[in-house]
């Protein structure tokens, strides 16, 4: 998929664990893992908003378009 999820990078920058982020934004660690691995089919705006708020970043910091 040409959309790459850079959630790992942002988590490392903020020195936050996946488990903590999952707890803050209110999703399961399994779902967060699906999102991180790029297996997710879609992301809800509410989830994106919660991630951006928790990591203090912009949606563009998490999602990136890469031409294959």
């Amino acid at each position: 998929m040409p959309i790459v999820i850079n959630l790992d990078v942002m988590l490392a920058k903020r020195k936050m664990k996946s488990k903590d982020l999952a707890e803050i934004i209110g999703i399961t660690t399994a779902n967060l893992s699906i999102l991180k691995s790029g297996k997710a089919k879609a992301v809800r705006f509410s989830t994106l908003e919660a991630i951006c708020e928790a990591l203090d970043c912009q949606p563009g910091d998490i999602l990136e378009y890469v031409n294959d």
Binding site: I27, N31, L32, I34, L35, K39, A40, K41, A42, V43, R44, T47
Partner: peptide, 8 residues
Amino acid sequence: NQENELTI
């Protein structure tokens, strides 16, 4: 259903 389950 699969798409719904994979919507985070």
